[in-house]
Amino acid sequence: MKVLGFLVVQNGVLIAISTVMAKLLKLDRSLSATFQNTIVLNNSGNFGIPVSQLVFHQQPLGLSIQIVVTIFQNFLTNTYGVWNFLSAGEKKGKVTAEFLKNPIIYALLFGLLFRSLDVPVPSFIWNPFQNVANAFLAVALLTLGAQVAYIDFKRFPSLLFVSVFGRLLLSPALAAMIIFALHLDGVTAQALFIASSYPCSRNTALYAWEYGHHPDYAAQAVLMSTLFSSVTVTMIVYLSKILF
């Protein structure tokens, strides 16, 4: 419950801060949605889990917390993130209908239901799903790579560096303050602090492309934040050992 409490508070504050920043920067609704998602949503799955496996290889609690963070981020991406993009679109009267077409929401609900009731999924259904799941990362990175191929590396908008700053530095700074306020310590504090520093979620770029909200900018944010994270995440891991 402490971990979930931290995640709700941290992401709630990030949503509020990114909304205020977008208004102060006078961004249009489409760019604002992409900008906010680059700051709030992070790559907690294929980036965060390997980092946690490396840092907490002798402390399973750290990896367990990262799994909770990943599940929470998936839920946030497919609720807040998708709603953010849809509400910025032209079909404002059909936002709810479009939102309910997202199959991942139902997959999450059924997963929780089957898990809580201890209902096994039949193998003839589970095995094809598992094969599709195994291919997801490769397909997602291939799609992102196709977007990156069209990026103009000679011209990066100044707003991009605000996104990178917000995701890589503002987020962990905010996390540290919340951790101290909640009196968390030890591996729990370290895992949450590190989890807050991961780069922009690749799903932000994929959904930006899907809904037509500045996909180039979203792809640039994912690329640049991932590159800079090699330095910043290393610093955060080091600081986590000192602070907590």
Rank of each mutant, 00 (worst) to 15 (best):
K2R: 15
F6W: 11
L7H: 09
L7N: 09
Q10C: 12
G12F: 10
V13F: 13
A16D: 11
T19A: 13
K23Q: 13
L25P: 08
L25M: 08
R29H: 12
R29G: 06
S30V: 09
S32L: 07
A33T: 05
T34M: 11
F35P: 10
N42W: 03
N42Q: 10
S44Y: 00
I49G: 04
V51Y: 01
S52C: 08
S52P: 11
L54T: 11
L54E: 07
F56A: 08
F56T: 09
Q59E: 14
P60V: 13
G62V: 13
L63Y: 04
L63S: 08
V69T: 01
F72D: 09
L76P: 01
T77Q: 12
T77N: 10
T77M: 14
T79H: 02
W83L: 15
S87F: 00
A88R: 09
A88S: 15
G89D: 05
E90S: 12
K91Y: 10
K91F: 06
G93E: 04
V95H: 07
V95S: 07
T96V: 15
E98N: 06
K101C: 12
A107G: 14
L112E: 05
F114K: 01
F114H: 02
S116K: 14
S116A: 09
D118S: 01
V119Q: 01
P122D: 00
F124D: 07
I125T: 09
P128A: 06
P128N: 02
